[in-house]
Deep mutational scan, measured.
Amino acid sequence: MQIFVKTLTGKTITLEVEPSDTIENVKAKIQDKEGIPPDQQRLIFNGKQLEDGRTLSDYNIQKDSTLHLVLR
């Protein structure tokens, strides 16, 4: 499925993911596309910070959902 990740600069990254993917996996995909190390990434969905060990389906993230990427 496709999800979107919006950065603070207003750029939107499109990712191909599975609901069973962990947040860690998603961060690795963002690193592949953008070169941002996962330990600098914080992903936010519906105002909640997403934890590495959880999956997209844990957070009820579905296709065409938009996550927000904050760098630390």
Rank of each mutant, 00 (worst) to 15 (best):
T22F: 13
D39I: 06
M1R: 08
G53D: 13
K29M: 05
A28G: 11
G47S: 12
R54S: 14
T14N: 05
V17M: 08
L15S: 01
K63Q: 12
I61S: 01
E18A: 13
V5Q: 00
V26I: 14
L8D: 14
R54L: 06
R72W: 12
S65A: 09
P38I: 14
R54V: 15
Q49N: 07
K48Q: 06
A28W: 07
D39M: 07
N46Q: 04
L43V: 12
Q49K: 05
D52W: 03
D52P: 04
T9H: 15
E51D: 09
L67Y: 01
K6R: 15
K29F: 06
P38V: 14
V17H: 08
L15A: 03
L67R: 01
K29R: 09
D32G: 11
I23N: 05
L56A: 06
L50S: 01
E24F: 08
I23H: 03
E16L: 07
D39T: 14
T66Q: 09
I36P: 07
L43T: 01
L67M: 01
E18M: 08
I13S: 07
L69D: 00
S57I: 14
Q2H: 02
T14G: 13
D21T: 06
K48N: 14
K27G: 09
R72S: 15
R42S: 10
R42M: 12
G47Y: 02
P38Y: 12
V26R: 00
N60Q: 11
K11F: 10
T9I: 03
T9G: 04
T12A: 02
I30P: 00
I13R: 13
G10P: 13
E24L: 02
T22N: 13
L8F: 07
K48G: 10
R54N: 04
Q2F: 07
I23D: 01
D21Q: 11
V70E: 15
V5I: 06
K48S: 14
I13T: 11
K6E: 08
D32R: 13
G10K: 02
Q41S: 12
K6G: 02
R42N: 12
N25T: 02
N46H: 03
E16T: 08
I44K: 04
I61G: 01
V70P: 10
N25S: 09
N25W: 05
K27Q: 15
S20Y: 09
L50D: 00
T9P: 11
G10L: 06
I36D: 02
F4W: 09
Q40N: 12
L67H: 01
I36V: 05
K33A: 14
L69N: 02
N60V: 08
R54T: 12
R72F: 12
Q40L: 12
E24R: 04
T66L: 09
T66E: 14
N60W: 05
I30F: 04
I13F: 03
G10N: 13
G53Y: 14
D39Y: 08
S65R: 02
Q2I: 02
Q62E: 14
I3K: 00
K33V: 07
I30T: 14
L56K: 00
Y59D: 15
D32T: 07
Q2R: 05
I13H: 06
S20A: 09
Q31P: 03
L67T: 10
M1F: 12
E34Y: 06
